[in-house]
Design a protein around this nucleic acid. Structure first.
Lengths: 144, 144
DNA sequence: GTAATCCTTCCAGTAACTGGAAGGTCAAGC
DNA sequence: GCTTGACCTTCCAGTTACTGGAAGGATTAC
């Protein structure tokens, strides 16, 4: 029985770059997550290489997607603990998601306001060689 | 003629905490912006305190608004340099504004996608005491 | 055998602040 | 006049979430 078979006996064992490809996270980031304790330290082979199984990749992919959805690492920590907690309340997870949605709505609202201002100004600006510019005039004026 | 009157003779002179209140930026951030050369070094009173006038507050307020709306410090630098350049072409300013509008549209699009995913998941989640949770199920599933 | 490509650790740097220590200044109250 | 507390200054360190690079060992391909 080979060494890696002993460690991750039910499935494909792989080293960090394979886990990176499968999870979508760069190797550096995987090590970083281990460093900060976001994931448990990986098993090691005799040569010191980290050894990942599909369950590890599972979690890493989970993290990759959550981060892509704008959850902070702290959010991910909370989500993971709920994820691995067999007694978790789905209400707790929902609350985290709803908070994120509220954040997103606020940001979208702010961006929409800025867009309106900029679009209005850009529309009024003749955009030629002359220095007169309603955009900058607006920045200078209307302040308090 | 008083000292601060000599420096900011047309209007109210103020120290950094007043400028902070009026611009919305914390004093630390104002000093930081001075440090990195985003704004010119503030005038100093005889006691070494920074001395701000309403024109400075104008600029700081502008920075506050722009940063809040997702413009990077580098963006702000470009906008400010056009703002203070008497020979600028209004076309240059307009181009920056149009680029920012495109950025904003992209960001709004991304946030909208995130929101859709999260809202769908949160909606499906019953959010009660039971551990079943479509949000976590979704994170866990669809792998590979 | 050796070159390329992994892997490891550690140290530094990024953006854009933010907090804290150490010390000088100022305005108010007694 | 003196103290107290709230300012102000500078500088150094820490934050978030990585990312890059150097130094050195292991594996693989030819």
């Amino acid at each position: 029985m080979r060494d890696e078979a002993r460690r991750n006996y039910c499935d494909d064992a792989m080293n960090i770059s394979q886990a990176a490809v499968r999870s979508g996270l760069p190797p550096k980031t995987i090590r970083y997550y281990e460093d900060i304790g976001l994931v448990d330290p990986a098993l090691r082979r005799d040569n010191g290489y980290r050894d990942y199984g599909s369950r590890d990749v599972h979690l890493l992919r989970f993290l990759h997607r959550a981060r892509n959805l704008g959850f902070t690492v702290a959010d991910c920590r909370a989500l993971l603990s709920l994820y691995t907690d067999r007694k978790r309340r789905s209400a707790d997870v929902k609350e985290i998601a709803l908070n994120r949605i509220a954040d997103i709505d606020r940001k979208i609202g702010e961006l929409g306001e800025m867009r309106t201002v900029l679009a209005t100004l850009a529309d009024k600006c003749h955009g030629d060689e002359r220095p007169d510019c309603p955009i900058l005039d607006e920045f200078a004026a209307g302040q308090e």
